[in-house]
Structures are given as C-alpha cells and as structure tokens.
Amino acid sequence: MAKKDAPLSLRPLDDRVVVEPTDAEEKTAGGILLPDTAKQKPQQGKVVAVGPGKLSDKGVRTAVGVKVGDTVIYGKYSGSDVEVSSKELKILRESDILAKLVK
C-alpha cells in the first residue's frame, strides 16, 4: 500500500514562503557521477506553502508573487533550514526568491 503524503503542518507568516529543495544533481552534464562531498547545495525548489503577505503601514496585506506548486530559484545562503514530518524544508522571505521558473 502506497503511503500518502501527510498534510503540511507548517503555516508561514507574513511574506514568508516554505520551499522543498530539489535533490542535488547526482551526475554532471558529461555523465560523471558525483560523490556526496562534491554535490552543491540546491538553489531551487518547489513552493509548498505561502504566507498571507506582508502587512503595509496602512494595514493592507500585499499579495505574495508566488503560489503553491511554483518552482523557484533562491540565493545560496538564503532562508532557514527546518525539518517537518521528516521532510527537509527551507523557509524564505519573498525577497530572498530570485526568480520563478516559467513553463
């Protein structure tokens, strides 16, 4: 019996975004297998939760520019790494996201 993913029990606040990083590349473009020590930390991932948006000085929420399911690229040392339900996740501010991949 296949195990279903448990619902995410993490709700980001304000303009924060929860991202599940993609796995590090196992091979180079030329087909060379990389050992664990040579793998680079991934800088892209899939958005799994989005906060309601930042509260302005006038009390109005500004919409966040990404939504659940988007694939984003973020800075190498951005955000905080957390583990929830045995999943490695990253919590970022919207301003830490550099780009959104468009299909």
Rank of each mutant, 00 (worst) to 15 (best):
L10R: 02
S78R: 03
Q43E: 14
E88Y: 12
G51W: 12
V47L: 04
S86A: 13
D23C: 13
V64R: 02
K76E: 15
A6D: 06
S95E: 12
D15R: 10
V47D: 03
Y77G: 02
E88V: 14
D70F: 09
A63V: 12
E20L: 08
D5R: 11
T22S: 08
K41M: 11
G65V: 05
P21Y: 10
S80W: 05
E88M: 14
Q43Y: 07
G30C: 05
M1S: 11
G30Y: 01
S85V: 11
A63I: 06
V60P: 00
T28L: 01
I32M: 14
A49P: 05
V50G: 01
G53Q: 03
K58V: 14
V82N: 13
A38S: 10
P21L: 13
P35I: 09
Y77D: 14
R16G: 00
S85L: 15
G79Q: 06
T37L: 07
A63L: 07
A29N: 03
L34S: 04
V72H: 03
D36Q: 11
S85N: 15
A29M: 07
S78K: 06
P21G: 15
D96N: 15
S56P: 00
K87Q: 13
T28S: 11
E25A: 12
V72F: 04
A24C: 08
S86L: 09
D36G: 09
I91K: 06
S85T: 14
D81S: 15
L55Y: 05
K41P: 04
E94A: 13
K39D: 03
R61P: 00
V19C: 05
D15H: 11
V18D: 05
D15T: 09
D14V: 04
K76P: 06
S86W: 01
R11F: 10
E83M: 12
Q44I: 07
E26N: 04
K90R: 15
S95C: 03
E94P: 02
K67C: 06
D14E: 14
V19R: 00
G65T: 12
E20V: 03
G45E: 06
L13D: 13
V50R: 00
V82E: 15
K103Y: 08
K4W: 05
P42K: 06
L89Y: 11
S80V: 11
A38W: 01
V18P: 03
S80E: 14
K4V: 14
K67N: 05
G30W: 00
P52E: 14
D57S: 15
P35S: 15
Q44S: 15
G53L: 04
G79A: 07
L8G: 09
G59K: 05
V18G: 08
E83H: 08
E26P: 00
K103P: 12
K87W: 02
G59T: 08
K54P: 05
I91Y: 04
V72P: 02
E83V: 15
A63P: 01
I73W: 01
R93F: 01
V60M: 06
D70Q: 09
P21N: 13
V72D: 03
E26G: 02
A99P: 01
V66E: 03
V48H: 00
V102P: 00
D96F: 08
D14S: 13
D81N: 15
K27Q: 01
K90F: 01
